[in-house]
Amino acid sequence: MDRRVSIAARVARGLEALAIGLGLTWRAMLRPKVTVQYPVEKKNVSHRFHGLLGLPIDPETGKDRCIICFQCERVCPSRCIHIEATGKGKERVLTRFDIEMDKCQYCGFCVEVCPTEAIVFAPHYEASTYNRANLLYTLDDLHKLAPKEPIATGIVRTNGRKHR
């Protein structure tokens, strides 16, 4: 800083800056608050939110819509989906549909490739637990997690068709 500036001038400049700063502070106090008291209040997430994954139950059939095509298992970059099935043709049933949520990176590729929209994002994001074993989500967990109301599926459709 310039040594020639007198002390009085420096004090004046300091006070001026203080006044400007305090003026801003006072004005800011009158504005609405933006803070969310998180664990008590929760923010709503958008309908595209990448939350936990779920397999919704189709109300017509009472089953999930998975056709066991293994596409999500194949596309997963962190290889966290494990699917096993028995039977042949139309009798094929899922025996295992596990997602290791500790490996999942919430990229949404599985949701994107699924031809029947059987796997979707649920609007939940609080997945922390004390035990790593809790992060292995089995078929039942995924059924329970799935959102109750119909999911907005328009997101992957653009100009009337689903992109592959």
Binding site: T129, Y130, N131, R132, A133, N134
Partner: peptide, 8 residues
């Protein structure tokens, strides 16, 4: 191995 706590 998985540490304390149980699956709930």
């Amino acid at each position: 191995w998985e540490g304390r706590g149980s699956r709930s």
